[in-house]
Every structure is written in C-alpha cells, then in structure tokens.
Amino acid sequence: MAQVSASPAAPAALSSHRLRRVRSRVPVWHLLWLLVAAIFFLLPIYSVVQFSLEGTLPGQGVFHWYETVFDDPMFRSTFWLSIQISLETVAVSLLLMVPTVFWIHLRLPRLRPVMDLITILPFVVPPIVLIVGLAPMLRKFSWLIVRPEVLALIYVVFALPFLYRALDAGLRAIDLRTLVEAAESLGSSIPGTLLRVILPNLRAAIIGGSLLTVAISMGEFTVASLLGFFTFPVYTYEIATSTAYEGVALSFISFIFVWAAMLALYLLGSGGRGAAGVAITD
C-alpha cells in the first residue's frame, strides 16, 4: 500500500494552484533543445546580416552592398529571369497536373498507386542524376536547349511530387464524385465542372502547391548552371565568388524571399500542415 507522507495538508486551493503551475512547467532539457535550435538557426542569419554590412569603405553607406547589388542591372535581369521561369513552371505544372489528378480521382482511381510511384521518382533521380540522362537528349533539340524556357520544362518534374501531393490531398478532402454528379445532373459538362466547381474548391491546394513550386524553381542551381543559364542562383554564385560581401547580401535577399513564400504557405495551410511541404534539396 502506498504510504502517504504525513505532512499536514496545505490549504487545498493554494497547493493545487502551485501544482498546476509545476505540472505545466516545461522540463529544462526541452527548453535547452529549443534554445540550441534557435541559436543554430539564428546564428547564420545574424552572421549574414552582420557580414553584409561590413567591408565598406569610409563614406559608403551601411547598406552599401545592398545598394551595389540593387544597382547591378544583372541583378534585376537574373531575378526577373528566375521569376519568369518560376511562373512558367507553375503554369505548365498546373496545366499538366490539375486535369490529370482530377481525372485520376474521377475515372481512373486504379492509377493512383502508379502516381504514388511516379512521385517518388524525382527523389530517386535527383536533379544532378537526371541531367546526366537529359542533357544528351536535349542536344538533339538545338532550338530548345538554348532557350531558358527549357528550365521550366525540367523544373516541372522537380515540382511534381509536391504539387501532386497538394492536389491529391485537396481532392481527397472534397467528395469529388458527388460534386461532379451533382453538376452533371444540373447540365454542366466535365470541363465546365472542373473549371467552375472543382477549381474553386481546390484553391488552397493550388496556391500552396504553386508557392512551393516557385520556391523550388527560384532556388534551383544544379540544372541551370550545368546547362549554362544565368539565373538568379547562378548569378548569386558568380557574384559571391568575386565579391563575398555582395554574395552574402544576395544570400540574405534569397533568404527573405524563401521565407516570404514559406510564411505565405504556412499561413495558408490550416494550422501549420502547409509548412510541412519541403523541396528536394538542391
């Protein structure tokens, strides 16, 4: 039998208040790990900011390196190029994926295991491996290989798993077949239903998938540099190898960009699920 200590019971109200506070107190090691993580994450960011404000000559402003970078026409042109490629990637991805995933859910559910398998493939065949097989193929299309749009066509593959996952989850959340049948009974055609009924219901999934796609395409370096395109990450690399300060300033700009995209994604996702989307490491 458990023996209760004989200490006189304190006034109940007081002791239970104290207890509740004791109970909800986080163990020290939890706080320690949170602190370690915070330091590990924030130290590089702090250093980047600090570093990018250093190395200026007398008379130059604190934000000299940022000014230099923003004044560089190459900054604007490469940033714009990367944005263009990202938007093209999103456009092609959506055009390809939305009808396909919709159709698979509606008429070909047996294909879903196949889709699951295909969405692992970009992980099995990372960009550096894919390009080994793809570059010699692209050579045969000399009109295509010189155009930066080719990057968008390739990035579609990298974005595939994330977009598929977002769309698949979005479609699973709605009773697709009932919606389609209801629309059909009211006289809507299948494309009309897709456009007017399904797409509005998939808005969150589409925006979320698109944001991830933008983040992936904006940061992609491997394929862009190996195929010889001067995108924003390639430009960042080139600048950084000549002027470290400018390169670090550019890194900070990329950081803010990715953060904005992920924050938007997080705010979009219900209670943080959206933030779980993670790109294949480049």
Partner: peptide, 24 residues
Amino acid sequence: EWPDSGAVIVDGQDVLGQPANKRN
C-alpha cells in the same frame, strides 16, 4: 488535471499534492 480549488481526499488524505504516478 488539477482543480482551481477544492480537494480530493482519499482515506482522509488530500492527494492533490501527489503526482499521478504516485497516487496508486
């Protein structure tokens, strides 16, 4: 869980001071 006020008395002893794993 803990009450804001009050007592849980088992065999004449207030057990609110004991953690769950000691209450048997």
